[in-house]
Amino acid sequence: MRDLIAVNYETEQPTVSARNLHEQLHIETPFKKWIDRMCEYGFEEYKDFWTKMSESTGGRPSTEYEISIDMAKQICMIQRSPEGKQIRQYFLDLEKAWNTPEQIFARALKMADKTIDKLKSDNAILIEDNERMKPKEIFADAVSTSDTSILIGELAKILRQNGVQTGQNKLFEWMRCNGYLIKRKGSDWNMPTQRAMDMDLFEIKETVINQPNGSTKISKTTKVTGKGQQYFINKLLAAM
């Protein structure tokens, strides 16, 4: 079959260039005026034809039209010319070839290949993300099983070693601003909020201090539980 007009098979449905069809039909009417008139025959944009801007040889932008094979066949009928009849028959022959079992199977294989390539690409991204996050996840899982509570300053050191740019004072400030520690100045300053205690993020270590005068004093220290360590590590690493 001689190729009268190049067909684009890369789109959802085969299309041809309206300008190319205009030339092959030997239409004397200027292309822009002709295609505007053709589009008035009930054809719909994004269903029967698609427009795009391109630069002509003179450097001035022009509007190009890609039209469906069905629209091209109807245009050929409208022309009522030998060229129109010949090109319409050409499109009919193309459709027969397009819908043979072999061509349908070939298109199905092509679609399957594209799907496989996309899945491979998505899988590669997931593997890369998994490898990047694995050290963080292992670290977070390890502290979740720990029964040892640590000081907030110690947690700051651990976070810094794992890429979180923080320090003891900065971490205290962040916890106060985000409602984990009491920020009201007084005896409860830097003590866990009720919300944080309900979440089992902290425990309060009480130490009895014997004063030189024989009296005693109770010192309270906020410590981060194993669950709290995992919580803050996951939260702060995710924000990186």
Rank of each mutant, 00 (worst) to 15 (best):
M1H: 13
D3E: 15
E12V: 14
V16E: 01
V16M: 01
R19D: 03
E23D: 14
E23A: 12
Q24Y: 08
F31P: 03
K33V: 09
D36G: 06
M38P: 11
M38G: 10
E40S: 09
Y41I: 02
F43W: 01
E45C: 04
W50Q: 00
T51S: 00
T51D: 01
K52P: 03
M53E: 08
M53Y: 03
T57M: 10
M71N: 00
M71G: 00
K73F: 08
S81L: 05
P82I: 04
E83Q: 06
Q86G: 07
I87L: 10
Q89S: 13
F91D: 13
L92C: 07
E95I: 15
P101Q: 10
E102V: 15
F105S: 00
A106F: 09
A108K: 05
K118L: 08
D122I: 07
A124S: 09
E128D: 15
N130D: 06
A142T: 02
T148V: 14
I150K: 12
I150G: 09
G153T: 04
L155Q: 02
K157M: 04
L159H: 10
L159G: 07
G163E: 04
G163W: 05
T166H: 12
T166E: 12
Q168S: 14
K170F: 07
K185I: 13
P192I: 04
R195H: 13
M197K: 15
E203D: 14
I204W: 00
N210E: 15
T222R: 00
Q230T: 08
F232W: 02
L237Y: 01
L237G: 02
M240P: 04
